[in-house]
Design a protein around this nucleic acid. Structure first.
Lengths: 334, 334
DNA sequence: CTGAAAGCGCTTACAG
DNA sequence: CTGAAAGCGCTTACAG
C-alpha cells in the first residue's frame, strides 16, 4: 500500500556509521552514547526522515505506549458531554507523556467480552475506567498486573487507584444552600442509584437533614436515572404528594431542567416558589431560563487527574486516591 | 509486572500436537486446515486461556488493527456533544470489524506535530479526521498510502473519501420553513465561516432568497462562531439595525439559544414575534422554553458512515462520498 | 493440507 | 562508551 518503504535502523546505522544498538540508544535518550556519534545518528534520522516503528518497538520492549480509556456503557452516554470532556482531559495528559489514548465504549459486563479480550492481549500499557458498573474485570486485570485507574469510587474496597469528584460535599453544599435560603421542604431527585456517585450525592443530602435533626419526609427522595424524562415524571409525582415542596436538589442538570419545566408548566415560579439546584454546571445550566444554579465539577481536571495517576503508576511512583472539590455556581434558580 | 507469563504459539502448538504455522492459520480462520487439527488447536487455546499478542501479530502482518480518530481542535470542543457522539458511532462500526479506535484531539496545524508523527509511525491502519482546518497533512498521508476518511467536506478537491451532513439542504429547509410561516425578514447567524460546513449552511440560506428573487438586506447575515455568546451579541446587533426582523436561522442550537435569550430579555416573544430555528437538534433544543425547532443531523449515523468508509477502503472496495440527509424537527420556536 | 524457516523492526543483557 | 547477537511473538511465502 505504501509507495515508498520507510527506512529502518539498519539504514540509519549504515549512514551514521554506527551499530543498530547505538541507534536504539540515541533514539531512547540513553545518555551513555558519545555526543559525536549521537549527533551523527540524529543527522541521519533527520536526513532520511526516519520515524520509529512503534509496533516493533512495542514488541521488543513490552511497552506499547497505549492506554485504554474504557467507558462501561453504551454509546448513548456520549449525548452527555461529560464523557467527551473527561476523555479529552485524560488524552491531553497522556499525550504530554508520549502515550496515546485508545477509546473503548462498551458495556463491560462479562469477563469474556471484546473489551476484556483486548485489555488482556497485551496491546495496552494500562487502562482507565469510567462509569464502572462492576469491579470484576478490574479485579482480574489488577491481578494480572495491568496498571489501572478508576474514575469514580470503586464499588468494592480494593487497592485500585481512583479519582473522583467530591459528590458528597457537592450535594451537601447544594442542600445546605437551599435551606439557608429559607426552604423548609427540600426534595432530592437522585441519579441511577446503582452508581456510587449517585449514592454519595444522596448521602450528602441526607447529612444536611441529619445535622438539622430532622428526617426527610417520605416521598421527598425521588429515585431518578439522570434523564430529562425522570426529572419531569418525578417532579410531577412529587408535587402530587408534597404540594408544599419549596426546594429541589436534582443530581444532574438534565433532571433539574425536567423539574423546572414541570414547575413552570404548572405556573409555579422558580425560584420564588420553588428553588432548584442542579449538578454538573453544564451548558444547559447557562442557557436555561431562569439560568440554573448548579454544582460545578471540574471535569477536565478529573480526566487530567486520572491521566496523572496512570503516569505515576507506570513510573512506579506512589499514588493516593484523588478527590476533586466542587463549587456551587449561583444563577437564577436558587 | 505481570505475575504469570502468558502462553504463546509455541505452547499451543505443543499441546495441540501441531506446528506454530497451523496454530496461526486456525487463529486467522484459514479454511485450509483440517477440521480435526483445527479443533485440537481451539481446544488448546480454550484450555490455556490463550489471547493472541496483537502487537506481535501487527509487526509480522503489517496490520495493527488500530484506526486513528483525529479531531483537529483543542479539547474544549468536547463541550459540544457532537464529537463524543460521532466518535462513538465510528468506534462501534470499527469494533464490529475487529478494529480499535485511537483518539487524538489536537490542533493538527503543522506537518511536524506529534499527531503527524504518530500517523506516520505505522501504528495505525488508517485515520479518520474531524473538524479539519487544512488539508496539508491529509494530502501528505494520502500520498504515503494511508487509508483516510474525512468527516465534513474537504477544503480542496482531492480524491479523499469523505462523509458529511447535507448542510446546504438543512439550511435551505430551515430558511424555507421560516418564510412559509410568514416571515418577511429572515436573518442568519452563521458558524465559524472558516469551516466548509458553515459556508454550506450559509449557501442554503442564500439559495432560498435567490429563489424568491430577493437579496438579504445588509446586516441580516451575522457571522458567528457557534458559541452561545456570539448568538447573544449578534442578536443584539441585529435588533439594533433591523428591529423588524421576524425570523432567525441560527447555524447551531447554542447560538439559537443565545438569540432566544436576548429576544425574551427584550420582551420580544418567540415564536409570536420572531421565529427561531437552530441546527443540531441537541439536548438543549428539547429542554429550552419554548422548545427549539431545529435541523436534526444524525450524528451517530455520520460516525458510522465514516467507519464504514474506512472498512471499505481497507478491504479495497470502491467507495463514494456519503452525504447524510437532515430533518426539520418542529417544536415551539418556529 | 502442513511444517521448517526466515523475517517483521526494534530492544537489551552481555561482553568488552 | 559500543557492538554482536539473541529475542520479542507472531505471519507467510516456500516446498512438499
Amino acid at each position: 500500500m505504501a509507495p515508498k518503504t520507510r527506512p529502518t535502523y539498519s539504514v540509519i546505522a549504515k549512514t551514521a556509521g554506527v551499530s543498530e544498538a547505538t541507534v536504539s540508544r540515541v533514539l531512547n535518550q540513553d545518555e551513555s552514547v558519545h555526543p559525536d556519534r549521537a549527533k551523527r545518528v540524529l543527522e541521519a534520522v533527520e536526513k532520511l526522515g526516519y520515524k520509529k516503528n512503534r509496533v516493533a518497538s512495542a514488541l521488543a520492549s513490552g511497552r506499547t505506549g497505549l492506554i485504554a480509556v474504557v467507558i462501561d456503557d453504551d454509546l448513548s452516554v456520549f449525548a452527555d458531554p461529560f464523557y467527551g470532556t473527561v476523555t479529552s482531559g485524560v488524552s491531553r495528559v497522556l499525550m504530554e507523556n508520549g502515550l496515546q489514548t485508545v477509546l473503548m465504549v462498551s458495556p463491560v459486563g462479562s469477563l469474556e467480552g471484546s473489551v476484556a479480550h483486548y485489555l488482556e492481549s497485551g496491546e495496552v500499557d494500562g487502562a482507565i475506567f469510567f462509569a464502572l458498573h462492576s469491579d470484576v474485570l478490574v479485579n482480574k486485570l489488577k491481578k494480572q498486573g495491568l496498571p489501572l485507574v478508576i474514575t469514580g469510587t470503586p464499588h468494592s474496597t480494593s487497592d485500585v487507584a481512583f479519582v473522583d469528584t467530591d459528590n458528597f460535599g457537592g450535594a451537601y453544599t447544594a442542600t445546605k444552600h437551599l435551606i439557608s435560603q429559607g426552604c423548609k421542604k427540600v426534595a432530592i431527585i437522585t441519579g441511577d442509584i446503582g452508581t456510587t456517585a449517585a449514592k454519595q450525592r444522596l448521602d450528602g443530602y441526607l447529612q444536611v437533614y441529619r445535622e438539622t435533626g430532622h428526617v426527610p419526609a417520605k416521598g421527598l427522595i425521588c429515585e431518578g436515572d439522570y434523564s430529562f424524562e425522570t426529572g419531569k415524571a418525578l417532579t410531577e409525582k412529587l408535587l402530587a404528594t408534597h404540594p408544599d415542596v419549596d426546594g429541589i436538589f436534582a443530581c444532574n442538570d438534565l433532571m433539574a431542567m425536567g423539574a423546572i419545566t414541570v414547575l413552570q408548566d404548572r405556573g409555579i415560579s422558580v425560584p420564588e416558589q420553588v428553588r432548584v439546584i442542579g449538578f454538573d454546571d453544564s451548558m444547559i445550566a447557562q442557557t436555561s431560563r431562569p439560568a440554573l444554579s448548579s454544582i460545578r465539577q471540574d471535569v477536565v481536571a478529573l480526566g487530567e487527574a486520572a491521566g496523572s495517576l496512570m503516569i505515576a503508576q507506570l513510573n512506579g511512583e506512589d499514588f493516593e486516591p484523588v478527590i476533586l472539590p466542587t463549587e456551587l455556581v449561583l444563577r437564577g434558580s436558587a
